[in-house]
Each structure stands twice: as structure tokens, then as C-alpha cells.
Simulated scan of single mutants.
Amino acid sequence: MILHHLGYVVRDLSEAARRWYDVAGIGPFLVLDHVHFDTLTVDGRPAAFDHSAAFAAHGDLFIEIQEVHAATPAAAADFFRLGSLPALQHLAYVVDDPASTAARFEANDIPQTVAAATSGLSIAQYDLAPSLGFAVEIHPRTDELTALFEKVRAAADGWDQSTFLQPFG
């Protein structure tokens, strides 16, 4: 597995995007407002998670910042680390064989906590917070996922540094 992106939960997307630029010179962050999941479970139970997410290229990696507007039930709010903002919430990997990755985690007693899907994208998060302080997020490699991150990389090429947040478009 090769690390794809780091996912942070922050209080304010605009402020976080500016700080990432101040610290690492990266941007712009492309924003998806109020991301909708067709299905979402936390610990196998239906959940609701209203958030906006923004992505920027950083070398071979990407940075994701998320501003959470609401999360229910309480297990979802706890999992997304809403009590300790800002926080590194997950390390994300894109894999060709998500079933074997899931089997590896299960064999090592790493529980899948979140399962979500929308528009050709799916996400599985595994809870490593007790031992490492964050979750591991697994994405199957899909054309939709590849296209999304190609847009992020293209936005970074030739960026004029005038706006730190830009809509996906």
C-alpha cells in the first residue's frame, strides 16, 4: 500500500487552507461542499455525516481538510474526532484489491468502523485510534477517484496563489 492522502478535521476550511499555504506553500484546496453519501454506516449502523471537504496536492501526496457540520449518532461524532479539533483523522490508501486489504486488517483485529459510498467512490475506515491516534481509510481504485485527484493536481499546476479555496468545477 502506498500512502495517498492525509485527512484532517478542522474547525474552518478557509483558515486551515491558509495555514497549509503558510507552512508548506501548498494550494489551492478544491472544495466539495456538504458531501453527500448514498450510504454511510458507523459500527455497522446507519449514520449521518454532513461535512465539506477540500483537497490539495502536496508532492506525491494529497492533503484533505474536512469541516464537519453535523454527525450522528454520537459514535460518528467520536470517530471523526470532533471533540479534539483540529486533528489528524485518517491516513488514506488507494488499493487495487480492497477485499484482501480488509482481510489483512480483520486478521490483525483492526475493526472496520466506517463504510460509505457515493457516485462511484467508496470508503472504508479502520479504527487505529487506540494504538496510533488515527484511522486508516481505504479507497478502491476507480476512474472516478482518479479523475477527482487529477483535478486537484491540475489545479496546483500554475496556481497563482490568489485564492486558497476553490470549488471543484
Rank of each mutant, 00 (worst) to 15 (best):
D109Y: 15
A56W: 01
S131T: 13
A47H: 03
W20G: 03
E64I: 06
G59A: 05
Q66T: 11
Q161H: 12
S131P: 02
R104I: 00
F49H: 02
G44M: 10
D109L: 15
A154C: 08
T39M: 10
A71C: 13
S52M: 04
I2F: 02
Q161G: 06
V23G: 04
A103E: 03
D160E: 14
A124G: 08
P111Q: 08
Y8A: 13
H69D: 11
F149M: 09
F62R: 00
F29D: 01
T146P: 01
I2H: 05
A117Q: 14
L30Q: 12
R104Q: 07
A17T: 00
G83F: 05
R11E: 11
T118H: 14
A117L: 13
F49Q: 03
L91P: 00
L6F: 06
A70M: 12
A54V: 08
V31H: 00
T163E: 12
L121A: 14
S131V: 14
F49K: 00
V31E: 06
D33N: 11
A74M: 15
L121W: 06
A124S: 10
L61G: 03
F105D: 05
V10T: 01
H5C: 07
A92H: 00
L30N: 01
A117R: 08
R45P: 00
A92G: 05
Q112N: 07
Y93G: 02
A154M: 14
V23L: 15
A107T: 08
P111S: 05
S100P: 00
D43C: 11
S162K: 15
L91C: 13
V136I: 07
F168C: 04
R153G: 12
T118M: 11
I26W: 01
F79S: 08
T163Y: 02
A24D: 12
V136N: 03
L88H: 01
E15I: 13
A156S: 13
D12F: 01
H58S: 06
V152K: 09
A24R: 07
T72Q: 14
L32I: 14
A107Q: 06
V42N: 02
A70D: 08
P73R: 15
S122N: 09
Y21M: 11
P28Q: 08
F29V: 04
Q166S: 14
L88R: 04
G133S: 10
H36M: 12
G27R: 03
Q89W: 01
R104D: 07
D12T: 04
V94T: 08
H51F: 12
L6R: 07
G25S: 07
F49M: 06
G169H: 13
T41C: 03
T142I: 14
L40M: 14
H90C: 05
R19W: 03
L61S: 11
S119V: 07
L121R: 10
E67Q: 15
K151Q: 09
R11W: 06
K151E: 14
Q112A: 12
V114M: 04
